[in-house]
C-alpha cells in the first residue's frame, strides 16, 4: 500500500528498478576489479596489522570496501581510531 502511494506521488526510490540498479552497481564493482571477498578480508587483516603499529583502532567497527564512481573504483576504508600509541603520540 505504501509503495502504491509513493508511486502515485511519483517517488521512485522504492521501485524495483532502483533496487536492480543498486545491486548491479555493487556486483559490477567486484566483477570489474576481480577482487574476491577473501582477498578483501586478507587486505583488511594486513591493514589492521600495519595501523596497529601506530594507533589503537576499533577492529570490530573497521570497514573496508570497494566503491565506484563512474569508471573509477576506489578502496574505501573507515577505521575508527581509539587512541594513538604512546611512542608516537608525543613525537610530531
Amino acid at each position: 500500500m505504501l509503495e502504491f502511494i509513493s508511486r502515485i506521488l511519483g517517488k521512485e526510490s522504492t521501485s524495483s528498478k532502483n533496487v536492480a540498479k543498486e545491486r548491479l552497481r555493487l556486483v559490477l564493482v567486484h566483477d570489474r576489479t576481480s577482487i574476491s571477498p577473501y582477498v578483501l578480508n586478507r587486505l583488511k587483516e594486513d591493514l589492521i596489522k600495519v595501523i596497529s603499529n601506530y594507533m589503537e583502532i576499533d577492529e570490530s567497527a573497521l570497514e573496508v570496501s570497494l566503491s565506484q564512481d563512474d569508471k573509477e573504483v576506489a578502496l574505501v576504508a573507515n577505521i575508527p581510531v581509539l587512541k594513538m600509541k604512546k611512542d608516537y603520540a608525543n613525537k610530531v
Binding site: R7, S15, S16, K17, A20, K21, R25, L28, K71
Partner: peptide, 18 residues
C-alpha cells in the same frame, strides 16, 4: 514497466556499461 519504474531504462543501462 519502464514507466512504472519496474524496469531499468536505456540510460540506466548505458550509464552502467559505458
Amino acid at each position: 514497466m519502464v514507466k512504472r519504474g519496474d524496469m531499468m531504462d536505456i540510460t540506466d543501462i548505458i550509464d552502467i556499461l559505458a
